[in-house]
């Protein structure tokens, strides 16, 4: 199990560009095909990862590792997802010592950025499909939609601190649900 965890997160680590929500569908695809976690367990992990500092990808790795194999699992998964960053950075620093020579990477990012955008949108779609947001045309859905819309306005229009938005939503959740 530890070896499987480690190898899986090493693989994810190599393509975890940005290290944020774009990585969530990549992890989810494997987790559900392996039957490692239920959908609701995975959603809780994404929510908890969003509440802590640091990148979502690394935080999810830590929590998935913990859930599957305790503290050793958490350490194994975290090292797994970080190791590729270390390798790539050392290679970049060793071979591209002149910072100007990263033209190739920039061209590659021309196609990669739209794909990352698609992955983030997809991450949101998955979460909506699996949450109570469209489960029933009843009160929980209306309340969730309200919290989601209000958070969106706070984040985009007023550039509110994400932690503040999460705390406020938890409070509103207690009141509404």
């Amino acid at each position: 199990m530890l070896l499987k965890l480690f190898l899986f997160f090493v693989k994810i680590g190599f393509i975890a560009f940005g290290g944020g929500y774009a990585v969530v569908p990549m992890i989810e695809h494997h987790i559900s095909s392996q039957g490692w976690l239920t959908d609701s367990e995975f959603q809780n992990i994404v929510a908890l990862s969003s509440m802590a500092p640091g990148s979502i990808a690394t935080n999810s790795a830590t929590l998935i590792g913990y859930k599957l194999a305790g503290v050793t699992g958490a350490i194994t998964a975290t090292i797994g997802i970080i190791l590729p960053s270390l390798l790539v950075v050392v290679l970049l620093a060793a071979f591209f010592s002149k910072f100007q020579s990263n033209r190739w990477f920039q061209t590659s990012f021309y196609g990669l950025r739209p794909i990352i955008t698609a992955l983030i949108v997809y991450a949101a779609i998955r979460l909506v499909l699996h949450s109570s947001l469209i489960n029933s045309l009843e009160w929980p859905m209306v309340a969730s939609l309200f919290i989601c819309a209000a958070s969106l306005v706070a984040l985009i229009k007023y550039k509110a601190n994400p932690l503040l938005v999460i705390a406020a939503s938890a409070f509103v959740g207690i009141v509404l649900f």
Partner: peptide, 13 residues
């Protein structure tokens, strides 16, 4: 509270 947080996480994404 967790339901509220999950709705906020969708907004974050």
């Amino acid at each position: 509270a967790m339901k509220g947080i999950k709705a906020a996480v969708i907004a974050l994404i």
